[in-house]
Design a protein around this nucleic acid. Structure first.
Lengths: 158, 158
DNA sequence: GCGAACCTACTCGGATATGGGATGTCCGAGTTCTCGTGG
DNA sequence: CCACGAGAACTCGGACATCCCATATCCGAGTAGGTTCGC
């Protein structure tokens, strides 16, 4: 799994603590965790294309959560970064080679079926957990974090 | 996920239908599904290293199931091919950059926690399903398959 | 003093390099079977 | 006819290329705000 998933999740969580009316530029989000700014920008673009973040260009621009944290599941973020295709893709090798039946077997590949069932369990677990859940848990276990995030992501006051 | 997982699963299933005392060479297993013989050999070696297959060299050699199909889970096969490391690996980016706490936070990363919980659900689903289950299901839905596998994987009779 | 036009600085967005791992191939070590030879 | 030994053929096992995608970077399009000029 790509490294950008971790970055995207942390960014969504951090954005859940700042004022939705004040966009945060990619560079500042990157500086918070010491990440490559332009590459993080790429991941944020993917989140924007998926409708999770809103992007505003120009000075005072940046990224903002487009939906409420309660409506952003971990599955949404993972799908936005990694794509919607399943990790295990059945290429139907049972229909190749000398064992290939003359008329294609209408029955589904049982190996694919099992692998997809397992992947569905994974997807369900991710879909059951939202950014709001993470937000609440962090606020309970580390109450100092939200204020620190707000301070470091806030725009520089001249 | 690598393509070799699909190959390995099909091979284990096919081997469950042949006589455990008669090893099947990699080339014949590859020919059954029209796969690159030497590359499939590489995957089978990984299965042998994991203790799933037994390999015997020389003429009349090949690969055999080392354990009973009931004792080979899909998780075993996936781990043998893909490795045991989790798909999502937390690099603790929360401890990097200006927000890094002076003494490392003993509390676990909650994002990592959620991702690992989801992956555990996936692993559990795979561990609950064995090659014997697949074997029984195929024998019920496609009774002609086992005989065909035995015939095509049997050693050539001069 | 006030308004408007211009200019600058800053941001996203996509097109462009690079490296590591999955994919694919090749040759050597070892074992078994076969064939020939001698008794 | 049988025992034995050398040879050959076949297999796994690991070392060696190749390709593709994740990673990383750079420059252009567009916009908001500040500045300056004219009235």
């Amino acid at each position: 799994m790509g490294e950008g998933v971790e970055w995207a999740l942390h960014c969504c969580l951090n954005l859940s603590w700042v004022d939705p009316g004040a966009p945060v530029p990619a560079g500042r989000l990157a500086a918070y965790h010491d990440l490559p700014p332009t590459y993080l920008n790429k991941q944020l673009q993917a989140l924007a294309r998926a409708g999770i973040l809103a992007s505003v260009p120009g000075p005072r621009g940046g990224f903002t959560l487009l939906r409420a944290p309660e409506r952003i599941t971990l599955m949404d973020v993972v799908t936005a970064i990694e794509g919607a295709e399943p990790a295990f893709r059945c290429t139907e090798i049972r229909h190749r080679g000398p064992a290939a039946p003359v008329d294609p077997d209408p029955a589904p590949c049982l190996i694919d079926r099992s692998m997809r069932a397992a992947e569905l369990a994974w997807r369900t677990a991710l879909a059951d957990r939202t950014v709001a859940d993470l937000k609440a848990d962090v606020e309970r276990t580390a109450p100092a974090v939200p204020e620190r995030v707000r301070r470091l992501l806030a725009p520089a006051r001249p």
